[in-house]
């Protein structure tokens, strides 16, 4: 069997990932395995490419590969290839395309634990809102959900202008009126 990363050398290392009880077998050559540092850092970053269906030439993937983050220029195609984002905004831009995969990979799609204590106005406003009565917050979440649906629909019909507009709206709601730090 050929190594699934380089597809050149013979795979000698069998490697089993279990995420959420789903067992995935991977086969690497010694060189790729050592480059991925199976020992030290988590290699799944690179393996995400496989999960996202790199190499499958479905028309759906092809269409999405044109979606580009306006802040850093990373395209969805780049992300699928490298499993790597270019800037914090990529998370919002590609959210629709990747949230299911992130959930599959991480077993969750929402953060628990420590929060950032950024000393900026932006975060203070965020915190204020987080402490606001829950009905207000629900309204906000609903609005965001609606905008997501709108963005998703826009991406589907390849109307990237409209998708970008929805994204900016979502960003405004999430972070207050500023859009950039």
């Amino acid at each position: 069997m050929l190594c699934e990363k380089c597809r050149v050398r013979e795979a000698t290392i069998q490697y089993t990932e279990v995420v959420n009880g789903v067992r995935t077998e991977h086969n690497f050559c010694a060189q790729c395995a050592s480059e991925m540092d199976l020992g030290q850092d988590f290699p799944l970053g690179r393996l995400l490419s496989g999960l996202l269906g790199l190499g499958t030439e479905s028309p759906r993937e092809e269409k999405y590969s044109q979606v580009v983050c306006p802040t850093c220029g990373t395209s969805y195609g780049d992300f699928v290839k490298n499993s790597r984002f270019g800037c914090p905004d990529c998370y919002e831009v590609f959210d629709l395309l990747i949230s299911d995969k992130i959930k599959q990979l991480q077993g969750s799609d929402s953060h628990k634990g420590k929060t950032a204590k950024n000393q900026t106005e932006k975060t203070e406003r965020q915190e204020e809102r987080a402490e606001a009565p829950s009905d207000g917050k629900d309204g906000l979440e609903e609005q965001i959900a609606r905008l997501y649906a709108c963005q998703q629909a826009a991406v589907r019909r390849e109307d990237y202008e409209e998708a970008a507009r929805c994204r900016d709206e979502i960003r405004k709601l999430r972070t207050g009126s500023e859009t950039d730090a």
Binding site: S83, I102, H111
Partner: peptide, 25 residues
């Protein structure tokens, strides 16, 4: 360090990282 440098952070995804395999915490 966060007192000096504001971090890329999102309410849904937590601390934002280049690889989504590190996102959250």
């Amino acid at each position: 360090i966060n007192g000096i440098f504001p971090y890329a952070y999102d309410r849904k995804y937590g601390f934002l990282t280049a690889y989504p395999t590190n996102v959250g915490t």
